[in-house]
Amino acid sequence: RYTFRTRGPEQMKRVVEWARRQNLSYRVEVHGDEYIIHAE
């Protein structure tokens, strides 16, 4: 189980790509310009 905090969509997309390659399920929360990605 991982939690990532990123700023801006570019970093968020990179984390999502990584999670997909690992076959993890993930969800993204948006708080202003901060993205929180939960993957497991």
Rank of each mutant, 00 (worst) to 15 (best):
E29N: 04
W18E: 02
H38R: 07
R7D: 07
M12T: 06
E17D: 11
E10L: 08
R27Q: 09
E34R: 06
T3G: 02
S25H: 13
R5Q: 05
R1M: 10
R20A: 09
R21K: 11
Q22S: 09
G32V: 04
Y26P: 03
M12Q: 02
Y35F: 12
I37V: 08
A19I: 15
A39P: 01
K13L: 14
T6P: 04
A39D: 00
Y26H: 04
N23C: 06
S25F: 13
A19G: 00
Y26L: 08
P9M: 14
Q22T: 06
E10R: 07
E29I: 11
Y26D: 00
G32L: 07
S25T: 13
P9H: 14
G8W: 15
F4Y: 05
Q11S: 11
R7F: 11
R1P: 10
V16I: 14
N23D: 05
R20H: 07
A39N: 00
E10D: 11
H31M: 12
R21Y: 06
R14H: 07
K13I: 11
Q11T: 10
I36N: 01
R27G: 03
Y35T: 04
Q11E: 13
W18T: 01
G32K: 05
R20G: 04
R27W: 15
G32F: 06
Y2Q: 04
Y35D: 01
S25R: 13
R1D: 05
R1H: 13
K13V: 08
I37H: 00
K13Y: 10
E34T: 12
Y26F: 12
A19P: 00
L24G: 01
R20L: 13
N23K: 10
D33K: 07
R1G: 11
T3M: 10
R1N: 09
I37G: 00
T6D: 01
R5S: 05
Q11V: 09
G8C: 13
R20K: 14
Y2T: 04
G8D: 15
H38E: 08
G32P: 04
R14F: 09
G32C: 04
H38D: 03
M12Y: 07
H38S: 05
W18K: 01
Y35W: 10
F4L: 04
T6E: 03
R27V: 13
T6Q: 02
Y35C: 04
H38Y: 15
R27M: 10
G32Y: 05
Y35V: 05
E10T: 08
E40R: 09
H31D: 14
A39H: 02
E29L: 07
N23I: 02
L24M: 14
R5H: 12
L24H: 03
E17V: 04
G8Y: 15
G32S: 05
R14A: 13
V16Y: 02
E29K: 04
R7A: 08
Y26V: 15
V30W: 07
G8S: 15
T3Q: 07
H38Q: 06
S25K: 13
Q22F: 11
E34D: 09
E10I: 08
V16A: 03
Q11H: 10
E34W: 15
N23M: 07
I37L: 04
V15G: 01
G32R: 05
P9S: 13
V30L: 11
I37P: 00
G32W: 04
M12P: 00
P9F: 15
R21W: 06
P9R: 14
Q11Y: 06
V30Q: 14
E40F: 15
V16T: 06
G8K: 15
V30A: 09
G8E: 15
A39R: 01
E17W: 06
Y35A: 05
R7W: 08
R20N: 09
V16R: 02
I36S: 02
H38A: 03
L24Q: 01
R20Y: 05
A19S: 03
M12I: 05
W18H: 02
L24W: 09
A19F: 09
E17H: 05
F4A: 01
V15Q: 01
K13N: 10
S25I: 14
R21G: 09
E40T: 11
E34P: 00
I37F: 04
W18V: 01
E40G: 13
G8T: 15
V16C: 05
H38L: 08
R27I: 13
G32A: 06
R27F: 12
F4D: 00
N23G: 15
R20T: 12
H31G: 03
N23V: 03
L24T: 01
I37Y: 01
R27D: 06
H38K: 05
R5G: 02
T3I: 14
H31Q: 12
E40M: 12
A39C: 15
A39S: 03
R14M: 12
R1Y: 11
I37D: 00
M12D: 00
F4N: 00
Y2I: 09
R27Y: 14
A39K: 01
V28G: 00
V15C: 11
R1E: 07
K13W: 12
G8N: 15
H31S: 11
R21S: 14
N23W: 04
L24V: 03
T3D: 02
E34M: 14
R7I: 09
V28M: 04
R20Q: 13
E10N: 07
R5M: 08
R27K: 11
A39Y: 08
L24Y: 10
E10W: 06
D33S: 09
E34Y: 14
V15E: 00
T6K: 03
I37A: 00
V16S: 02
V16H: 02
K13T: 09
R14I: 13
